[in-house]
Design a protein around this nucleic acid. Sequence first.
RNA 1: GCCCGGGUGGUGGAAUGGUAUACACGAAGGACUUAAAAUCCUUUGCCCGCAAGGGCUUGCGAGUUCGAGUCUCGCCUCGGGCACCA
Length: 779
Amino acid sequence: MLLTEFPYPSGNLHIGHWYAFAIPDIYARYLRMNGKNVSYPMGFDAFGLPAENAAIKNNTNPRDWTEKNIAYMTKQLKSMGAVFDWPREVRTIDPEYYKWTQWLFLKFYEKGLAYRAPTLVNWCPRDKTVLANEQVVDGKCERDGEPVIQKEITQWMFRITDYADRLIDDLSGLDWPETTKIAQRNWIGRSEGALIKFPIFNSKSSGGGQKYVEVFTTRADTLFGATYLVIAPEHPMVMKLTDDQHLDGINEYLEEAKRKTEMERAHLDKEKTGVPTGGFVLNSINNEKIPVWVADYVVGWYGTGAVMAVPAHDDRDWEFAKKYNLPVKMVVCPNYPAPMCPVLENAFIEDGHLVDSAEFTGMKSSEAREKITKKLKEKGLADFKKNYKLHDWVLSRQRYWGVPIPMIHCQTCGYQPVSEKDLPVKLPKLDDFKPSDDGRSPLAKAISWLKVKCPQCRREGERETDTMDTFVDSSWYFLRYADPKNKKEFASQDKIFKWLPVPLYIGGAEHNTMHLLYARFYTKALHDLGYVNFNEPFLKRVNRGLILGPDHQKMSKSRGNVIDPDEEVKKYGADTVRMFLAFMGPYEQGGPWDPRGINGVYRFLSRVWSLFNAKSKTQNAKSEAKELEIKLNQTIKKIGEDISELKFNTCVSEMMKLLNELEKQENLSLAVCRSFLLLLSPFAPHLAEELWLNILKNKNSIHLEKWPEFDETIIAEEKINLIVQINGKMKDVITARRGLSKEEAKQLALASEKIKKHLTEMPPKDFIYVQDKLINFVG
RNA sequence: GCCCGGGUGGUGGAAUGGUAUACACGAAGGACUUAAAAUCCUUUGCCCGCAAGGGCUUGCGAGUUCGAGUCUCGCCUCGGGCACCA
């Protein structure tokens, strides 16, 4: 299976779709010509917000809008001349598909991988829905740029954090771009450190409740330098630690913090602010009493929402301590042993050797981290701990156009899963599908759909009205490609085994930390549930580049630099558009669309056409001149290698070079004509077929033919250019046969007039010979 | 701030440590044409020179090597990702 990310049915193919699908098609065709059983499937990721917004605007409904687009885009896709495996087409909006999206959700629910809990979510006020962390960019809604606000709502979630370690560790075995792996590692953000408890010194309500404030740190080695503690404004123990004297200040600060959006809080250049609580905790490692502050530079949801502040060894704590005149105590020294540590002008945040740290003094940071944590662990005051930036995946959406979450809420039994035999829970038709201001999903308005018996107690219940994030739909679609018509299972074991995991997945880098992470999570979960026999869905991943406008800017309607593929096809034909996209540059890089550059490819194909139509020339020769034969064999070899490495641009230039040679010939043999068309056929399938049938008079399609073979021994007959250098500077080039001995090469070089001249002026001491490459006289 | 990528003619780009600038675009000149388009031919990295020829050049500066666009180090610069994550 050659997999490319299935498109969203936006209504129109843009040039990026051509790049995404027509170029991998070259590879699919190449594999097929090499005898592989290739499936290059296509489908539509068809649920999602734009359909609703467009339907509202056009006064239609999302399903009609979406299906119309799919029909139109299918027609456009067919114009590419790609070998799409249409019988396997998958559409996420088909009940036969989303039945299994729901079924998989239920399986996850059974295993506790899907759960409902209150959580702080990103809320987009314009779209009136929750967004995943991954869908928030710079504190704004990825879709419409509306600033996102934080809200606590009870939501359905996937326990992706259970898989955090495996999602990081298994990356090492994948043939993926290093940049994608790094992006995922950063996103998951594992850090290894310690949880440390700080006993509360003067608890207001002694007895009962928490006795400790717990912090997470990766720098236990700096514990002796902790001079205060900071907790986030949303920390549950804020009030408990606050004494009467500081109550007003704290209340004021909390009000302020609540008002701020996440973006305002996160802004780096902003000066840090905080207030003391009046409370104190004990640093058990040195029995010092240190004050507790509240400050919003501490992130509430990460770790324990509290940190030990070590101003001497952390930039943020340093800044805060300087502002509020808190003590700075240096406990890690860069140079050791040394008579004295340098006076700090900034926080020293690197590892070093400990000073002023009791029995740990002199230890390296790495050793001290472990020893200090261990010592406190013995007293029950610390433990080793890994922490992650990754959140659980919030999948509920308060929108209409998505897969209904198959759960029923009952006053008595709580949430109950819909029984499997009642799947799919079909999305009801709604006239008014607009989101409501109260944050409830539009499905709440479908009264007759809503009311349903509780599967447990048979009393009156209500369906869950939230729908699923569309990333749920796309987290398993490649599995369905293996067995798209199956009515009994999401896909049969046999078919899964036959087609998966995906050997090569081509797509856009924008999915690095979203779709690719989710699909990996799904695969791992399904593996653990026993439904698939592999741990990773995509063995190799290639990120395609971006096609830019002629002005080197990202294409956009507002810039007016959009290239419409339909128009280009009308002007030049599909083969030219395909081949030009292949020729533009390395596939991973993309590049600007040059409206004049496409002429080059158009001319090339026209010249191919003319050459084959010049009856006097083609198919007349019995055999080829040796040089042409060598060139042909080289080209076959090179293009095969380059397609395998997805280096399509150099393939095109090789064909151009070969054509330049063919045009110089008086006559061409049938064999050469055949080979040339075969090489061309994955790139320009229409033209190659036409010439194959009409000019070469073949009965069967060229696309059923085998990839041409090359003969290594013919390639070896090629004469080489022996470069003659003097002190590394090229002075002459001599044509010679392959495999000259060192002495033969020397004699040949010395025979050259130019070289003689140079060497009499300065006789060489020695020379270096690289066979079939060069000879370098060193003076 | 941290982590990744890039930087080669007028442009897109090519080059297992071994002829840098392949292939193409554009441009200039010429052929065909009443003319234009299309097509075909020639030239086309920069500098000196009438020429033969010579010198310089892969962001900048060092280094390793017989030999560096390619490897190493430092710097400049553009693009991307993460970003108060303790």
